[in-house]
Design a protein around this nucleic acid. Structure first.
Length: 494
RNA sequence: CGGGAUGUAGCGCAGUCCGGUUAGCGCGCCACGUUCGGGACGUGGAGGUCGAAGGUUCGAAUCCUUUCAUCCCGACCA
């Protein structure tokens, strides 16, 4: 196996290649032979599972339950919400037939023309329509509200150009769909969930994010307001990592979902939807990795500690591994996942490199010398440092290290983001910085879609969000000079 | 869908311009041995018929036509 990762001398130029290389070599995913689709390999999926588990717990803690809705959505459902169809119609996979037959000319299998569907089925690009069609039957009175459902599912969007984890034709995600009695309650839910996403990104992934509103141009098709978490990747581009939408009564009206309110009057239900996808994997990779490979935060690492025996001959191996198993048992008791790599067909140096590539947070190496001295070598993936320590109290030390590494990875990313966030007032300066530095730019904008569009066309930068915690700061739009109430966050993005 | 490029062993490539023995190289893989504190080494071995189809030719990885696929740059997007 050619495991060497390409050295990344110029991140701006080669970042895509480097990213693909890393995703492949770390064993996370690969392109499938199926157009635009991705195979998530076991190691990559193990990380995704850890993300799922943590998120799912957070959803449950905020009162949500899981359910599952159909993969296929009748075409007519899409015509009920005008903006929604505008946003999604272009990129849908459509099922038109339900049967195959042997080719009469003997050339394999063909679609049976007699098996044409009356109404085509759309493979869900998102589930608002099918879910609101279902909710209609669940809701009669305010006593039926709120409905706080989430589903873990796959969705399909027929993208022109794909990229592992960041944009694939099919991807895995969770989508929450809630129904509420009042506007205020729905808005509160949308905020609550974007903050769940923020907490997850920062506390589990170690990726600092900016929470804010999407501008009108970038808003979800059919939403009144879209909240987003925006992360900054190491190449200076932004990545939208999760969204939470306040849908108003749009879908309730489209699907005629009304309830008897406390005054006995019929009213349309208020809605939210929110989701994060396997794109988070991309964020995780691009936020922390270095030239040695992946850097995983302990909370999401499938293997938190790897132990590598150093030895000559079978006897030494046995002795070292036996001691390692004692440590491993102790660590497992504390809920730390451990792997002892006692493979005899590769040398220890190879293993070191391999686990660095896979981003394992802590590596322990022990050989005959350590056995004699009662020591062990302990290496940190985030710092690429190693030291030899006394075996005594090892478990405590590692438990502490887990927290320290988790924190350090976040701090590093935060420092990077701060360094890469610039306050800009001049449009020419803005353009120059985009090319020379990248990152987030905090700028005044006159609030019009036209100006945003113009900036996008001229610079490829978009408004990532209007941060919710930005202080009010009157100023002048950097392009038109018209008044602005506060700065918004610009960046080039994935 | 527009612009560019590439398809040769599991992976990365050379060979193609200028057609000519049995299609090469590195990594990986298999066997044995020596090694083993940062990606080991030796010896032996397996594996491709050059993306696909058609054509030109005594002869095609190489020339021509068609086609498919992938990647990059745009447009679209979580």
């Amino acid at each position: 196996m050619a495991k060497e990762l390409k050295e990344l001398t110029s991140r701006e130029e080669n970042y895509s290649q480097w990213y693909n290389d890393l995703v492949g070599k770390a064993g996370l995913a690969e392109n499938s032979s199926v157009r635009g689709c991705m195979v998530i390999k076991p190691y990559g999926y193990a990380i995704w599972e850890k993300m799922q588990r943590a998120l799912d717990q957070m959803f449950k803690d905020t009162g949500h339950v899981n359910a599952y809705f159909p993969l296929f959505i009748p075409k007519s459902f899409f015509s009920k919400e005008a903006k929604h169809v505008e946003g999604f119609a272009k990129e849908c996979a459509v099922v038109t037939h339900y049967r195959l037959m042997n080719d009469p000319e003997g050339k394999g299998v063909v679609v049976d023309p007699d098996a044409k569907l009356e109404e085509e089925l759309i493979v869900r690009p998102t589930s608002e329509t099918i879910i609101w069609n279902t909710y209609k039957g669940w809701i009669q009175s305010y006593r039926d509200l709120p409905i706080l459902c989430n589903q873990w599912a796959n969705v399909v969007r027929w993208e022109m150009r794909t990229r592992l984890f960041l944009r694939t034709a099919e991807f895995l995600w969770q989508e929450g769909h809630t129904a509420h009695e009042t506007r205020e309650e729905a808005i509160e839910e949308a905020y609550k969930m974007v903050h769940v996403y923020r907490d997850f990104a920062e506390q589990f992934m170690g990726v600092p994010v900016i929470v804010g509103h999407k501008s009108e141009n970038e808003r979800f098709a059919g939403a009144e307001d879209t909240l987003t978490i925006e992360a900054l990747m190491q190449d200076g581009k932004a990545l939208q990592s999760g969204t939470s939408h306040f849908l108003g009564q749009n879908f309730a009206k489209a699907f005629d979902v009304q309830f008897a309110n406390r005054d006995g009057k019929l009213e349309h239900v208020w809605a939210t939807s929110w989701g994060v996808s396997t794109r988070l994997m991309g964020a995780l990779i691009m936020a922390h990795s270095d030239n040695n490979g992946l850097v995983l935060p302990p909370k999401l690492a499938p293997i938190q500690v790897v132990m590598i025996p150093i030895y000559k001959g079978e006897e030494e191996l046995k002795a070292v591994v036996a001691r390692m198993e004692e440590f491993a048992a102790e660590l497992k008791k504390r809920g730390i996942s451990v792997k002892i790599d006692d493979r005899d067909n590769v040398r220890s140096g190879f293993k070191f490199a391999e686990y660095e590539l896979k981003g394992v947070p802590v590596r322990l190496a022990m050989g005959p010398r350590d056995m004699q001295n009662g020591t062990i070598e302990i290496a940190r993936r985030d710092m690429l440092t190693k030291e030899t320590v006394q075996q005594e109290g090892l478990a405590d030390m590692i438990e502490g290290l887990m927290d320290e590494i988790q924190k350090n990875i976040f701090e590093k990313a935060l420092t990077f983001r701060e360094r890469m966030t610039t306050v800009v007032d001049d449009y020419e300066e803005f353009k120059r910085l985009l090319d020379e530095k990248g990152g987030f730019m905090l700028c005044h904008w006159d609030g019009t879609p036209e100006t945003e569009e113009k900036i996008k066309e001229e610079t490829k930068a978009t408004i990532r969000c209007i941060p919710i915690d930005m202080p009010a700061e009157p100023g002048k739009c950097m392009v038109t000079g018209k008044p602005s109430a506060g700065r918004v966050l610009f960046a080039r993005s994935y």
